[in-house]
Design a binder for these strands. Structure first.
Lengths: 135, 135
DNA sequence: AGTCAATAGTTGTATTTGCAACTTTTAGTA
DNA sequence: TACTAAAAGTTGCAAATACAACTATTGACT
């Protein structure tokens, strides 16, 4: 069954990538997926915690404590929304933006290495198909 | 950059699937990815722990303890290899095989639902491209 | 205005996770 | 045969994870 294989392959590739990136992010004290959260915050300044949770599909309580850690370590700041006081908006600090530069480079290298066997056309097609998964 | 998006999309889809499957596997006491390990053991009887770790890309110490749990709960048995006493081969019990039937159904339903927007041709192409990622 | 439900986020707590370090077994090789 | 390195698996321990349950804010409906 092809459907099975697709998800299983995605799972293995993703777990491998997560392990590799956490390993690499370690020297910046951004292991345990902290790198993942920081990257998204830099690229989407001002998004809320629940926005981020939906974006990367992670448990909100895990995210809450991870973001506290990122804030303690001065990579981000959490700001209570002015008009909507329920949510907290996330912004990178200067330190966060600097670390992002390094993380981005690491991610780029890793991803590029994994994709060498796919042509540009194949990559475009792969992305197109992936975005059709799960509505 | 397309390469980035591919991995990020895979990550989100995979995490979502993992959460959904763990939620569903809960009533069989097979949460925390135990379902994942059991499925692979039933489908690849006799594989070793390190085989399994490579197959699904998970940390070997995490796997070691998870498999102990699976064995304690009588879903699998661990057998020291006859010719190679370094490794332990994994086999499902009858109970393990029965649970597999339910898990397979849940996985099939979930996966199918996620793939409704892709034609059979697209699914085949998606799998082909995915298997080219990371050699 | 008042009630109710939904949304956003945090905290309590038990369990899981994963790095470091360890044992055991095997393979290579001098 | 003995030495060394690699491979397979386990355990100690500190930290992360995630389910329940909670507070706080907002929106909807009467």
């Amino acid at each position: 069954m092809t459907e099975f294989e697709i998800f299983r392959q995605m799972g293995a590739v993703s777990r491998q990538a997560t392990m590799a990136m956490n390993e690499a992010a370690r020297k910046y004290e951004l292991e345990n997926n902290l790198f993942l959260y920081l990257i998204r915050i830099v690229e989407n300044e001002g998004l809320t915690q629940s926005d981020l949770a939906k974006l990367i599909q992670v448990d909100k309580t895990t995210l809450s404590r991870a973001l506290r850690k990122l804030a303690e370590r001065q990579y981000i700041v959490k700001v209570v929304g002015e008009e909507n006081r329920k949510s907290k908006q996330l912004f990178p600090t200067e330190k966060g933006r600097q670390s992002y530069q390094f993380l981005e480079k690491i991610e780029k290298e890793y991803v590029h290495e994994q994709m060498v066997d796919l042509s540009a056309t194949e990559q475009t097609e792969l992305l197109r198909l992936l975005t059709k998964v799960g509505q």
